[in-house]
Design a protein around this nucleic acid. Structure first.
Lengths: 228, 228
DNA sequence: CGTTCGCTTGAACTAATTCAAGATAAGTGG
DNA sequence: CCACTTATCTTGAATTAGTTCAAGCGAACG
């Protein structure tokens, strides 16, 4: 039921039932196959999405054709509230990693909801502000910290987001290549490979083809936070 | 007159007079001396500001005590709309560079204005979204581009923002030390100094103690955009 | 069973940092 | 007005984190 999905998003959480119902019943459903795109960078921002099933990658292409990953998202994550703004374009690509399902609202519907329930506009402001602060922190991280630490944080973030318990730790439940981790942390696949190998040698992680398992969260946190 | 100042901010521009008047008459005035802070990182976000006179620096301190500059702002720039959100804290410092004057609204006032004129909430969303996209671009820049190019862009941005015509080019009308440029571009003051010296030798800029003059915008743009 | 794709590792290289020393310029107080 | 002090800037030399390139390994997949 859409209603329950919405209740789990931070955007809709704790709102009165009447608003949830209004939003849920105004939603469209969109299915996107793994590898396909919800939208591309530069497309007119027409729809706001809440991911229901699957996983997706937020990425940007540099003018030179180099790709960087701005984030990886899973169910109940909201994307594209910029669609509420007339004339806006999406600032990045949203690509499904696995077959995915999303609820979606177009601008007119969104505006109707905002007009009926002004709290939704404030919530949108809240959401973008929170993302802004997060991005600011990652910016600072990129400007001031070494690759090993950035990679440690990226893995801790991913484990928190999409971790699945495994026999010897927690596995990141996404096919995640070295190249992806490199684009996520602003480095090269070689450096990622070397770093993961070093960590594996001391038992912090286990990793293989497009897969990383975190075995020793304490020690990885120590690296991320620069503790003893 | 406050009304005119507001008309020049992108946040208020093109709004009906009645809204501008409502906003202007609800504003408080705050004066801050050069070097003093409007607010600190971590303070409860109580006020939204529009800078009227002076210049200010947006900066963050890392847990290790290293500072990075997120931006430099001048008159008619809006800061701190996060104050509209209950429980939020400022994510960075805002420090006056010169004696400054700002219009300011506290949360209750802001909410009253939002209720009376819902377009203001949408505008807030618009503003934060625009800043978000800008920051994303700078993030990509930091992740993928070399220091020289980042510095070139930073200087072009500053010239556009606070440039003042001079005899031999356009001067950045701010006391701006090498260290400031380093913190703005994610590098060290030494690298900034070397790069500016190299540029000065080929006539792209002239620079001295806390001062940079851009003499050849075309060539600096060529560096920023990686043209021939 | 061979081909493909992702991963690893070594070696050379480089952009940028770090550290040190000195030069230059701007106040400050006698 | 000049010496003193302080802050900013420059430059060189050594170092290093990370990149780039090349070669080869190994698991997945048709």
């Amino acid at each position: 039921m859409h209603h329950d999905l919405l209740r789990r998003c931070t955007y809709f959480t704790d709102l009165p039932d009447v608003i949830l119902t209004a939003a849920a019943s105004a939603a469209q459903v969109r299915r996107v196959l793994g590898g396909e795109f919800f939208f591309h960078q530069g497309d007119p921002a027409s729809h706001f999405y809440v991911l229901a099933e699957g996983n997706a990658r937020l990425s940007q292409i540099t003018p030179e054709g180099r790709q960087i990953i701005m984030g990886l998202i899973g169910p109940s994550h909201e994307i594209g509230i910029i669609a509420a703004i007339a004339g806006a374009v999406y600032p990045l690509d949203l690509q499904a990693i696995q077959d995915s399902l999303a609820l979606t609202w177009d601008r007119a519907t969104l505006r109707t909801l905002f007009d009926a329930h002004p709290v939704l506009a404030l919530r949108a402001l809240h959401m973008v502000s929170a993302r802004f602060v997060e991005l600011q922190d990652r910016y600072r991280e990129l400007a001031t910290e070494r690759v090993e630490r950035r990679l440690a944080r990226a893995i801790l973030r991913l484990v928190a987001q999409v971790g699945q318990p495994a026999s010897d730790g927690v596995t990141i439940a996404l096919p995640l290549a070295r190249q992806d981790l490199a684009e996520l942390t602003g480095t090269t696949l070689f450096t990622v490979s070397r770093t993961l190998s070093a960590w594996e040698n001391v038992g912090i992680v286990r990793s293989g083809r497009e897969r990383v398992t975190l075995c020793d969260p304490e020690r990885l946190t120590a690296i991320a936070e620069d503790l003893p």
